[in-house]
Design a protein around this nucleic acid. Sequence first.
DNA 1: ACATTGATTAGATAATTGTCTAATTATACA
DNA 2: TGTATAATTAGACAATTATCTAATCAATGT
Lengths: 91, 91
Amino acid sequence: MNLLFKALRDPTRRRILEMLKERDLTVGQISEAFAMTTPSISYHLDLLKHAQLVSARKNGQFVTYSLETTVLDDSLGWILDLIKKGKRKQK
Amino acid sequence: MNLLFKALRDPTRRRILEMLKERDLTVGQISEAFAMTTPSISYHLDLLKHAQLVSARKNGQFVTYSLETTVLDDSLGWILDLIKKGKRKQK
DNA sequence: ACATTGATTAGATAATTGTCTAATTATACA
DNA sequence: TGTATAATTAGACAATTATCTAATCAATGT
């Protein structure tokens, strides 16, 4: 839960997730979309991987990243619970 | 969106939200639940307020904080969207 | 008016974070 | 075998963040 919210805190990482929801992408392809060096992107991807928000598979020299949605379910549950109880209390 | 995720990143702040989903609480009441000084709690509450996750009303010397759930809907939408498109792509 | 209590503000500080450059690893290809 | 390309790792550094103590503000009660 902590790693997840930590990962979601950064705008660059959220944008990467949005890109990956459309299609799987290599580090280079992701890197092109940002005014930022490849090592920096690599750093963000590593953080996302630790949060289990993405997975990486390597073919040849390329590493392709995919979005992993299972962990997001937990966050969804957590937030939903806040909203639910919030609403109940309000009445 | 950025302020929201920034606010949710910290464990102390998430715990505060969980407490506020049960009932409204004063700063002192919240403070008691943590091994942390009141100024530190005040700092976190201010951050939560800026993210519009809580509201504060003052009666007498006391300031009572309440959970505000409207902003959470946005985050929910954002996350849901990731999950949805993630699932679609997967098939 | 003064002391007490609840809360915020100010200022200092150590830890964490996001970025960079340089170096390294690993694959591809001529 | 050597060189080019994709990506990660290492190390440095500035900015941000979470915490503390001390000071201040505001309301309460004597």
